[in-house]
């Protein structure tokens, strides 16, 4: 019996993202030694744990960037781990968004083009993609920075541009890996505040990897990864 059925039986909504006993090694180094996890739609889950515990690896597995050696990853009931690279790329493009610590903006592109990138990759026309991208600048307090290149943005601004890019295609799941990791407390808090309010508005599910409790406190619940193990099958409640 799968976890999603169990959830159905219990009368809870079906999880949108699940990991069942996911294990992954890099060569001889085990990075994940059994992760069990389920998220319901609209939930914000903080993945915590000391550095090297495997939290980022767990996120990469959930997002279909890495494939676990054993175990299953399901998105909306579909196996992600058995998909081909092409399919997973499309899944990432159409259903997932990403915000990472740094180095994610394409330096040659302007801020608005960076935001429009997922839409362009999805085949949207240039003008439509840019219009959609620009709509994100005002709510994220980025007005006036549309034409800047990534090198001309401050850390907080770059991170907000990355957030806009992660959200522009209205993904069902946003993956955020230490999104405030390179920012000071106040800037980090602003980014988190924008991230949470935007995802709540859209009903986006968020997987938030962080080692900071104050960042994790923005989530609905947390799961702690220790020595590559994580266990949090009981999907939490969604805060309204």
């Amino acid at each position: 019996m799968s976890a999603s059925q169990a959830a159905d039986d219990a009368g809870q909504p079906a999880p949108i993202l699940e990991a069942h006993d996911a294990q992954l090694s890099f060569g001889v180094t085990p990075a994940l030694r059994g992760a069990n996890l389920a998220l319901v739609r609209g939930e914000i889950l903080a993945v915590m744990g000391p550095s090297g515990s495997g939290k980022s690896t767990l996120l990469y597995c959930l997002a279909g960037i890495l494939t676990p050696d054993t175990g299953e990853i399901l998105f909306d009931g579909q196996r992600v781990d058995t998909m081909g690279e092409q399919e997973r790329s499309r899944l990432r493009r159409d259903h997932f968004g990403f915000v990472f610590q740094f180095g994610q903006l394409v330096p040659e592109l302007t801020a608005e083009e960076n935001v429009a990138l997922p839409l362009l990759l999805g085949g949207a026309s240039r003008s439509r993609a840019l219009d959609a991208a620009r709509a994100w600048f005002e709510p994220l307090s980025l007005d006036g920075l549309e034409r800047r290149r990534s090198g001309e943005l401050s850390g907080g601004q770059a991170q907000r541009v990355a957030l806009a890019r992660g959200l522009v295609s209205r993904p069902e799941v946003l993956f955020a890996d230490e999104p405030t990791g390179s920012l000071d407390s106040l800037t980090g808090e602003q980014v988190m505040e924008l991230l949470v309010s935007a995802t709540r508005r859209q009903g986006t599910t968020v997987v938030l990897v962080t080692h900071e409790a104050r960042v994790a406190a923005y989530a609905d619940r947390e799961v702690v990864v220790r020595d590559g193990k994580a266990n949090s099958l009981s999907a939490g409640r969604v805060r309204s």
Partner: peptide, 8 residues
């Protein structure tokens, strides 16, 4: 963390 969430 629950308390921190409330405070947040």
């Amino acid at each position: 963390l629950q308390r921190m969430r409330e405070l947040t």
